[in-house]
Amino acid sequence: MELINAVPVRHPGRWIGAAIILIAVALMIQSLVTNTRFRWDIVRTYLFDVLIINGIGWTLILTATSMIIAIVLAIVLAFMRQSDNPLFRYVSWVWVWFFRGTPVYTQLVFWGLVSTLYPKIILGVPFGPEWFSFDTSTLITATFGAIVGLGLNESAYLAEIFRAGLKSVDNGQMEAAEALGMRRSKVMWRIILPQAMRVIIPPTGNETIGMLKTTSLVLAIPFTLDLTFVSNTLANRTYLPIPLLIVAAIWYLVITSVLMVGQYFIEKHYGKGVDNVMKAPVKATEVAAAAHAHPMNTTNGTTEGGK
């Protein structure tokens, strides 16, 4: 057997393109280094400033908590939308219509004004006795408003993503599970949703990264501890907007990169049985290496007692 050793097709265009990009990047680096108005010394001073680090902390808290609220709500909303119960379907539709139909900035301003609108919240029977009441401003703080405002708005977008994911699962899955006597809610939770996650994760990762930056809108409430607000304040104080913008941008990039790594592993988890299954023949050396890890490659291998 003579192995084919063909001359590959040449791609001169790629080399020219690479050269142009290289020159452009070199010019950019040169300007970054030589243009003193970037004030890299200030960037260095403030990159790990305690106020900035605090701001990152708050930005992360806002992102994480509002996304958790949004995901929980989105699952409920998507299940409601697929329900047999028309009331559920209608409520879910109106929720998405409202929160997707108004700007998140407007919603955040509103959450900041709730205590002006309703200074006291009273629990009791309408026109009847009053059980207890409290000042709204003690309950709806700026933090609460920011988290709830961002979370509710995001839930509408995520609900649509989750709905698309649930719809992407083959109808036969529902039939097979129902034929086994499983109740619909159990089928959704154990059979449909895990498969839908494959479709749901990438856009949800996208939304999480979007949320990281949407948190900068909380000044509408006003919430004043997040990364953008703090770096703006420092910029105004020092009259040096450019280096502080760079500081904020660096941190947003770092966090986004970390989130992308996390997304990779979550995608891998939910792709099991579908994406990361070796079906095509692989190189002999890889087979040998993977033989222990993967039952696929053991011909008539022993049965490991299932996990």
Binding site: Q173, A179, M182, K186, V274
Partner: peptide, 24 residues
């Protein structure tokens, strides 16, 4: 038993078989 099998693709053969007995 369906024409197109309709096994749960995210579960192993064993997990497919024990799903209903354990859950239902």
């Amino acid at each position: 038993v369906f024409q197109r099998f309709n096994l749960f693709p995210h579960k192993t053969a064993l997990q497919n078989v024990i799903e209903a007995p354990t859950q239902v």
